[in-house]
Design a protein around this nucleic acid. Structure first.
Lengths: 148, 148
DNA sequence: CAGGTTGGTCAAGCAGCTTGACCATATAGT
DNA sequence: ACTATATGGTCAAGCTGCTTGACCAACCTG
């Protein structure tokens, strides 16, 4: 693989990622959640299963815990999550999604599905599945990082 | 395709994109260009062929021309590009890469090639090519947008 | 050549992050 | 049990990269 081909792949990947983010955000806004930014989505993804602490969230997002705390302040203020006492650690507080938070998460899923549907029209179901499998196998474990 | 599968694909894509950005940046830094951020790379990509005006750059990056101008200020100050009079439009100025700018671009290509090489070890050459072709076909034309 | 458009800059403001300091609770060492 | 250290969280201040708004100079159209 030549450097220029690697660059073409990288550029295409990053362009698709940026476009995907934009379209999911647009879809979420179109579904009535107008006070939310893409970064919140990644927080929701971490909160969704069982909640998480601010420190967990910070590690997942690759930011300081102060930044994560500020982000939690915001989504709590807007009604998407709430802080609860942490069972088994009186220092910590468990941040969990409210029903509104779940509704927003479902909206994001629906918006993502729309985008992927467009891809399926361009590539066919099989190639989209191949894409998903390939990307899943090279996806990193660490914190989610902004694409730039 | 279920919503949850679309979400899994989206999450994998965004995770890979963030990781790719991080690794290219690390590789560029490791090659001695320590005063550069990922956003600059996207500017370089637009400047590389024949240079561009600030307004071109702004449209390509999806930001205001003031922001683009500020970014150009920075890469000019750091020696990666220079402003020249625009042939055929006395208002405009053509921003072109310096030799240092080209060297940095080559460093980014080499860093990207390293990352793609890792992918090839995980997936095989054929699947990487399939990835590139699939992503190229769904890549948008418009401005490059941050992944979040 | 007058009127509107386009390329670019200057200036001020803001959002989201950082670093640094600090408190309360938890955990480990002796 | 008692001290020492580590960890979860917040408050405060500061910085960086973006935005909006105002403006000038050069271009283009009638």
């Amino acid at each position: 693989m030549q450097n220029s081909e690697a660059m073409a792949l990288s550029a295409a990947l990053l362009a698709v990622a940026g476009d995907l983010t934009q379209r999911i955000n647009d879809g979420v806004v179109a579904r009535g959640f107008t006070d939310i930014r893409p970064a919140h989505g990644f927080a929701f993804a971490r909160l969704a299963p069982d909640g998480a602490t601010v420190t967990d969230l910070a590690a997942h997002l690759g930011v300081t815990k102060q930044a994560a705390s500020q982000l939690v302040d915001e989504i709590v203020r807007k009604g998407y999550a709430e802080r609860r006492p942490h069972p088994g650690d009186a220092r910590a507080r468990l941040v969990v999604l409210t029903e509104r938070g779940w509704a927003c998460t479902r909206a994001a899923e629906a918006a993502a599905a729309e985008v992927v549907e467009r891809w399926a029209e361009l590539l066919g179901e099989g190639e989209v599945r191949a894409l998903r499998e390939g990307l899943t196998r090279i996806a990193p474990y660490g914190p989610i990082r902004p694409a730039w």
